[in-house]
Simulated assay, not measured.
Amino acid sequence: MKRVLFVCTGNTCRSSMAEGLFNYIVENDKDGTKDFKAFSAGLSAFENDCANPKAQKVLKEQYNVDISSHKARRITKSDVESAYIILTMTEEHKNAVLRMFPGAADKTYTIKEYAYEDDVSSNSMNHQRRYGHNMNIGDPYGFPEEVYKECAKEIKDALDRIIMKLK
């Protein structure tokens, strides 16, 4: 089983949504991704916090994905070592992971960096100008449900590309 690790700050919004969406997609995919499984962690997570209620609601209503049983946890050395690939929500998260686990440099990317790397010229500023967005997934925490919907869509769009690459 190839493990995909999603990382954000608290592991209650972005990375938990990415984990839920990724696992739902691969579980329902008929060709080529059955050997992948996602898990998630946070850099500053409060252990065992539930997924944010807005994140739960948006995934259930928009994508029929249930993350109600998710429990937040902090990233560990074991997580990093067992991961086939590590996908962070922002450059800041990526840099933090690499400071903590420098040996993971060859398998750590932002989610958008990995999803769109074939489209990006040499730097993310060109990508931002070309595609009208940056390489980070913004934190919806504390914002209205609409922001969670936009965040989930950004994650889903990136995951669709990533899953095609993993096949």
Rank of each mutant, 00 (worst) to 15 (best):
V4A: 01
V7C: 11
V7S: 12
V7W: 05
V7F: 04
N11V: 02
C13P: 07
C13K: 06
C13V: 03
S16Q: 08
E19P: 06
E19Y: 03
G20N: 09
G20V: 03
L21P: 10
N23P: 13
E27K: 14
D31Q: 08
D35T: 10
D35H: 13
F39G: 04
G42F: 03
G42E: 06
S44P: 00
A45E: 08
N48E: 09
N48A: 06
N48I: 00
C50I: 01
C50A: 12
A51K: 05
A51T: 01
A51S: 11
A51P: 09
P53H: 07
Q56L: 02
K57W: 01
L59R: 11
L59I: 12
K60I: 04
K71M: 06
A72M: 06
R73C: 12
I75C: 11
S78D: 15
D79P: 15
V80W: 14
S82W: 00
I86V: 15
L87V: 08
T88E: 03
M89Q: 11
T90L: 00
E92Y: 05
H93T: 05
K94H: 09
N95Q: 15
N95R: 15
V97W: 10
F101M: 09
A104I: 08
A105Y: 05
D106M: 07
K107D: 08
K107I: 08
K107C: 11
T108I: 06
T110H: 10
I111L: 15
E113M: 07
Y114H: 07
A115R: 09
E117K: 15
D119P: 00
V120R: 14
S121T: 10
S122F: 08
N123A: 01
S124C: 05
S124R: 14
M125T: 04
M125V: 07
M125E: 06
H127G: 07
H127Q: 05
R129F: 14
R130A: 14
Y131H: 11
N134F: 12
N136T: 03
N136Q: 07
I137A: 09
I137D: 05
P140E: 02
G142W: 03
G142N: 06
E145R: 12
E146M: 00
Y148A: 02
Y148D: 04
K149V: 13
K149I: 13
E150C: 00
C151D: 02
A152D: 03
I155W: 10
D157M: 09
L159N: 11
L159Y: 11
M164K: 15
L166W: 07
K167T: 01
